[in-house]
Design a protein around this nucleic acid. Structure first.
Lengths: 226, 226
DNA sequence: CCGTTTCTTGACGTGGTTTTCACGCAGCCC
DNA sequence: GGGCTGCGTGAAAACCACGTCAAGAAACGG
């Protein structure tokens, strides 16, 4: 389920969005200040952020920067100001879209769909990802061994594997992995990586001691080699 | 270079966009009708489409569908109509953004940047850097020998090589290198440079004793010669 | 409520990376 | 020519990161 973090200090808007988004099947988190937004995003990384620029504590652009420091999660900005400079600075700070108040809920929902559409299918991942004698299907979250047996992965294992598989051939740094899977405060818990990488290799690699697809780049990170 | 296809039937807007986009370093193609747009996009696939909805021949949404049938290229819609339904239908048909006329050029440019930012990953370095019989890809962090074998580099070797490769042809002083790779307090440990430069040359140069690409500038620093 | 799975945390041996030291050599200035 | 400096190379030592095992805590499901 897609998790959306809504950041706004006006209770009515917060309420309206929460109801509407929940009704559409999204999981909704809310925050009323910039500081709370950053904290919530860190502990529970959302799949999308809807951010009002007019917050009481922090400047909206600061919140965008705070998020962009460690995540590429899509950000849709809401703002009462229609000025060109506001839009430009927010977009260049890392926002993905900018909606001027008053806005129609239908429009916001359509923009949310437009942004999230890129998320799932956007990555250039063919349905046939292979590791050793296994086929991984990211779309329906299944791993099938060539003899037909299913291999089960835990949520954390999936998150980690998915991050690697969506960047085939590319190096994924330890920090990126930790941030994406566990959140920014886990940046230095590299023992998690070793732990779960070992589990993945045990389940997927032909010879877990000599991995051919889930490669360690010492001191840097990991890489999925097709 | 990013190639943008601008689709609009008003000559002034077309002209204004072409000039502004060219000035920003984009490659610009234009089309005045929906049919021409589809044809041009097919023969010369663009990296981004700016599409006016009010075309004489086809409905704008039809153009979006025509493109989405075979490509996931980002589409930014321009429209004179601010109605909610128009926006929703365009976005749900596959548009990535929707800008209402009249719009500021600054805003459109910012939105173009926002959309393209997701695309390239932001690495402004061409992936085709060559040293001897090797190809270096900074984005993926891979070095491939021409016979297909992978060459592995340690983190320090990468840091040093990257610094040189990101300044092609330019002299990089010893101090700059030491500071970037090891930190400011290592400014005088020039033996590190000799050590690691030798390692890089052994791994990358055709004849490590007579380097052709990783050049020493005695007393000053090092240089990557393409 | 209990059993099972999953996540978190700690410890340890091993291998690779970094750091450090030593030596030979070429160019340069006095 | 002698002394000096800076560069390239080799090898040993110190250090760090990785993989692995193991066990406790937390979350989950019946």
């Amino acid at each position: 389920m897609t998790r959306i973090l809504v950041v706004d200090d006006e209770p009515q808007i917060l309420r309206a969005l929460r109801i509407n988004l929940r009704a559409r099947g999204y999981e909704v988190q809310v925050a009323e200040t910039g500081a709370a937004a950053l904290k919530t995003a860190a502990s529970h990384p959302p799949d999308l952020v809807v951010l009002d620029l007019g917050l009481p504590d922090l400047d909206g652009v600061e919140v965008i920067r705070g998020l962009r420091g460690w995540t590429t999660v899509p950000i849709i900005v809401l703002s009462g100001r229609a000025g060109s400079e506001d839009k430009v600075s927010a977009l260049d700070a890392g926002a993905d879209d900018y909606v001027t108040k008053p806005f129609g809920v239908d429009e916001l929902l359509a923009r949310i769909r437009a942004v999230t559409r890129r998320l799932g299918g956007g990555a250039p991942v063919g349905p046939a990802l292979r590791i050793g004698r296994h086929t991984v299907d990211l779309a329906d979250r299944t791993v099938t061994r060539d003899d037909g047996a299913e291999v089960r992965l835990t949520p954390t294992q999936w998150a980690m594997l998915e991050k690697l598989l969506r960047n085939p051939g590319k190096l994924v740094s330890q920090r990126q992995l930790l941030q994406d899977v566990w959140g920014p405060e886990y940046q230095h818990e590299t023992n998690y990586l070793r732990q779960y990488m070992a589990q993945l290799r045990r389940k997927l690699e032909d010879d877990p001691a000599r991995p051919r697809h889930l490669i360690t780049e010492p001191g840097m990170g990991y890489r999925y080699r097709p």
